[in-house]
């Protein structure tokens, strides 16, 4: 019973219909919110005591670095759902996350690089966090090219999901080992457990930018998964009627 209900609810068709209703206002809302957070951060916060104005890129860099990892975890969850319950919708979502994850990760690297020039005096440092982010970026690219290399997309979904799961098990290991290898980077500015080391004047817009960026990216994931559904289920009658 439950399984049947689940399958009906999570069918690409009903998902598409529901998503279609709210995805555009949802995206617009978070987009404006993100712009608002950036304006707040860039123009209405005081400069940093040490880094001056250059620190302001934090409002772009931190949300992107955060999402780069979160997206992989989300992708692992949807992949596991696909492999265990054979829900095609989950595979479509997984597949749509990969390119977005790659772009976000690239953006994190790029913004970090720009930030590095005034702060460290170099655009690249072989330190732990940058290196693991670069590895993450390569993993996203590997997943994308793996999926693209199969004509039989049903099989591609399975291989993709297996690789995502192997990847998600390995990411903490890679991170730990890279940390062990070397670390220069300042440790994370915000943690859930301890008192934040950053001034509230800067913290609030930062939180704001993170939350709105999460919303924005999830909106994009939904939009692109809708696209994927249209592409993959083009033989179904309900798609032909759209």
């Amino acid at each position: 019973m439950i399984k049947k209900f689940f399958h009906q609810f999570a069918s690409p068709k009903s998902y598409f219909a529901i998503a279609n209703k709210f995805v555009k206002p949802f995206l617009a809302f978070f987009f404006l919110l993100y712009i608002g957070a950036l304006v707040w951060g860039l123009f209405f916060t005081p400069p940093d005591a040490v880094q001056g104005d250059s620190y302001r890129i934090i409002y772009m860099h931190v949300p992107a670095s955060f999402m780069a990892q979160i997206l992989f975890v989300v992708m692992a969850i949807t992949s596991a759902v696909f492999l265990i319950w054979k829900l095609k919708l989950a595979a479509y979502v997984s597949k749509s996350i990969a390119p977005i994850g790659a772009i976000v990760t690239f953006f994190a690297l790029f913004s970090g690089s720009i930030w590095g020039i005034p702060t460290w005096g170099t655009w690249w440092q072989w330190d732990a966090r940058i290196t693991s982010t670069l590895i993450l970026f390569i993993m996203y690219l590997g997943l994308i090219s793996l999926h693209a290399s199969f004509e039989n997309k049903d099989k591609a979904d399975k291989f993709f999901s297996v690789l995502v799961l192997i990847g998600v098990v390995n990411i903490p290991i890679i991170k730990k080992s890279v940390d062990w290898w070397s670390t220069l980077h300042q440790s994370a500015s915000i943690t859930l457990t301890s008192k934040p080391a950053i001034d509230p004047v800067m913290l609030y817009p930062l939180m704001f930018s993170i939350v709105s960026f999460i919303g924005l990216i999830f909106g994009l994931v939904i939009l692109s998964s809708q696209n994927e559904i249209l592409k993959r289920e083009k033989y179904k009658s309900w798609v032909k009627n759209i």
Binding site: I138, G142, S149, G167, I174, S177
Partner: peptide, 15 residues
């Protein structure tokens, strides 16, 4: 393709 998807997993071993 094989290289692209496996080398990241081997980085800990190299370290």
């Amino acid at each position: 393709l094989g290289l692209l998807i496996t080398i990241p997993f081997l980085i800990p071993v190299l370290i």
